[in-house]
């Protein structure tokens, strides 16, 4: 039985070698396709992975779901799930999002993110959020501080060479909405940095989820805040 299978395999391989020149063309086309594909998917991975760090009650789960649903509206495959730790108000939490152009089968927690979003800068004091975040990958932090200050803060705990994008999410939120809502505001910055989903689909998803819940006026203010975060430098 086994030898038969092996024989079949061998003859199959031989046939393949005979068509080598054709095969090389195929490889070339493949390479071109992969290049095109990776440009589309930006960070050279076919699954784009995000980790949200926040404190329980800050709405990281909502933010993650808005991004996930926005990606679904654009025809992508997604996965969004909280790290299943003890859920207490104020305790540090993690939320994971995966976005891809093809079906996502894995259910393991994300360990090698492409982007890390931190909704509360005090988490940087207690946790290392930049694990496996490489040079070309990004850290988005809700803070009043500058990128340099955050970089110095991070260097105490771990080496980090990636890009840091600070955004005064609470400030913008207080100014426009009148309440500290860093989770939705930071979406604007996140979209600006990654462009994994479009700002339009994030806003339309926000309307869908909150439109009836918080009323038109509050929704419009929140959207204005998201847009302002998107326009920051």
């Amino acid at each position: 039985m086994h030898s038969k299978v092996a024989q079949k395999n061998n003859s199959y391989c031989e046939k393949r070698y005979k068509t080598q020149s054709y095969y090389n063309w195929v490889l070339l086309f493949n390479d071109i396709f992969i290049l095109w594909y990776t440009i589309i998917m930006k960070y050279h991975k076919d699954i784009f992975e995000i980790i949200f760090h926040a404190r329980g009650g800050q709405g990281a789960k909502t933010a993650a779901e808005i991004i996930a649903q926005a990606a679904v509206n654009e025809g992508k495959f997604v996965q969004a799930f909280p790290q299943f730790g003890p859920e207490r108000s104020g305790a540090p939490t993690k939320t994971f999002v995966r976005i891809s152009d093809h079906e996502i089968r894995t259910h393991e927690p994300i360990t090698d993110p492409d982007v890390v979003v931190v909704l509360d800068e005090t988490i940087l004091d207690s946790e290392i959020v930049t694990t496996n975040l490489d040079k070309n990958e990004a850290l988005v932090v809700a803070t009043k501080k500058t990128a340099l200050e955050i970089s110095q803060k991070l260097s105490v705990r771990a080496r980090f060479e990636g890009k840091i994008y600070p955004i005064d999410a609470n400030g913008i939120s207080m100014e426009i909405v009148g309440q500290p809502r860093p989770n939705t505001v930071i979406l604007g910055k996140f979209v600006q940095v990654t462009e994994i989903v479009s700002l339009e689909s994030v806003i339309s998803e926000f309307k869908k989820i909150f439109g009836t819940k918080i009323g038109k006026e509050a929704t419009d203010k929140n959207i204005l805040a998201i847009e302002k975060a998107y326009d920051t430098i």
Partner: peptide, 17 residues
Amino acid sequence: CLPSQSDYNEEKLIIRF
């Protein structure tokens, strides 16, 4: 440009290498 499985099995191009 995507080859189907049957394309691999074609014996048209026989080149030593």
